[in-house]
Simulated scan of single mutants.
Amino acid sequence: MDVLGLIMAYLPTPWNCTSNRFAIIRHLQENLTSLRQTRDELENISKDVRSMVELAEQQYRKRTNQVEGWLERERRKLEEVQNILEKGEQEIQRKCLGSCCPRNCHSSYKLGKEVIKETEAVKDLINKGKEFKSLDEVSEKLPPPPVDEISVKKTVGMESILNEVWSCLDDHEVSVNGIYGKGGVGKTTLLQKLNNKFINERRDFDVVIWVTVSKEVNLDGIQEVIRYKLDIPEMKYGKVK
């Protein structure tokens, strides 16, 4: 029988404590262990949720307010739990007969109740975190940007022809403008600069689509680029029985 057990046997109501209060004090160390284990489980689930959120953001998706709120609550809760665990370790170290005075028992009881309460709060966060099972549950699709910036190498002496091509876009009677020339003279670079110019000078266009067409035309690939930029939902095909 431990020290607290002896006290309970011979002093059943020393400071007006009920048996339930003594149980909370007596099992403080066990409850601290339980809190530490649930804390570890919450941290593991949080890592999984954050990995999903990072993957979603790499795919140009935005994290939902719900998952953002959960991550913030999880962060704050882990800080609170860490403080309680530190207090618990200090209390355990002081737990001996010489320190078992009314004030210390009250302190252990108060801390024990806090440990139990925090354990339940952590479990609630764990259950909520388990609901985030897919990208659609942690993020929402963002509309594609009107213009995708393209990395362009530095050039010299191309501004004049760039401005000339840019001015051609103001001719609303012409629906198609073409650039031609020998290979290697800078046609692709010129078009890349033209594409990026739309970022700050939008003109009358809602969207700019950059599509690369190789000698071996991949029609499905071209259509997929256009579908994405126009934010057209992907169609699912199936056999009709």
Score class of each variant (00 low, 15 high):
Trp15Pro: 05
Cys17Trp: 14
Cys105Phe: 15
Phe22Glu: 01
Ala9Thr: 03
Asn44Pro: 00
Glu79Asp: 13
Asp136His: 08
Arg26Thr: 02
Ser175Trp: 09
Ile161Val: 09
Val165Gln: 01
Asp231Ile: 05
Val122His: 03
Tyr60Glu: 13
Lys95Glu: 03
Lys87Gly: 03
Glu159Gly: 02
Gln192Asn: 12
Gln29Glu: 15
Phe205Val: 03
Glu137Gly: 01
Arg76Tyr: 13
Gly112Thr: 04
Leu162Arg: 05
Thr155Val: 15
Gln223Ala: 14
Val156Arg: 03
Glu137Tyr: 03
Gly184Asp: 04
Arg61Trp: 09
Leu11Cys: 15
Lys110Ile: 01
Lys133Tyr: 04
Gly129His: 03
Thr119Asn: 13
Lys95Phe: 15
Gly98Met: 12
Met8Arg: 10
Glu80Trp: 05
Lys239Arg: 04
Phe132Glu: 01
Ser51Lys: 10
Leu219Asp: 10
Lys47Pro: 00
Lys241Val: 03
Val81Asn: 07
Ser160Asn: 07
Arg63Met: 14
Cys96Phe: 07
Val240Thr: 02
Glu118Val: 00
Cys168Asp: 06
Lys241Asp: 10
Arg63Gln: 14
Glu43Pro: 00
Ser99Ile: 01
Thr155Lys: 14
Tyr228Glu: 14
Arg227Ile: 11
Gly221Val: 06
Glu118Phe: 04
His172Val: 08
Leu191Trp: 04
Lys187Ala: 11
Tyr109Cys: 11
Leu85Ala: 04
Trp15Gly: 09
Pro144Lys: 09
Asn65Ser: 15
Lys47Asp: 01
Leu55Ala: 09
Lys154Met: 08
Ile126Trp: 06
Ser107Phe: 14
Leu97Pro: 00
Trp15Met: 09
Thr188Met: 11
Thr212Pro: 01
Lys193Trp: 03
Tyr180Ala: 12
Asn104Cys: 15
Pro145Gln: 05
Leu78Glu: 09
Asn65Tyr: 13
Arg94Cys: 08
Glu234Pro: 05
Met52Val: 01
Glu137Trp: 01
Ile126Lys: 09
Ser107Ala: 14
Glu91Gly: 11
Asn31Arg: 10
Ser46Pro: 00
Arg61Asp: 07
Asn16Ile: 06
Asn196Phe: 08
Glu91Ala: 14
Ser134Cys: 10
Cys101Thr: 13
Lys239Val: 08
Arg94Trp: 07
Ile179Gly: 02
Thr188His: 12
Arg227Asn: 11
Cys17Arg: 04
Lys62Trp: 10
Tyr228Asp: 13
Glu131Thr: 05
Met1Gln: 11
Tyr180Asn: 04
Leu32Phe: 06
Asn196Thr: 02
Lys229Val: 03
Lys123Val: 07
Glu74Gln: 09
Gln90Gly: 13
Thr64Val: 02
Ser134Pro: 01
Glu173Arg: 05
Leu194Arg: 02
Ala9Met: 08
Gly178Thr: 12
Glu72Gln: 12
Asn20Pro: 01
Glu149Asp: 12
Lys229Arg: 14
Lys239Trp: 11
Ser167Phe: 06
Val217Ala: 09
Lys187Asn: 10
Gln82Ile: 01
Ile45Pro: 00
Val81Glu: 07
Gln66Met: 14
Glu234Lys: 11
Ile232Tyr: 15
Leu42His: 02
Leu85Gly: 07
Pro102Glu: 15
Ile24Val: 12
Gln59Asn: 09
Lys197Glu: 01
Thr13Val: 05
Ile179Tyr: 03
Ile25Tyr: 04
Gln58Trp: 03
Glu80Asp: 14
Trp70Tyr: 06
Gly129Cys: 06
Asp2Gln: 04
Asn200Leu: 11
Arg63Gly: 07
Thr119Ser: 13
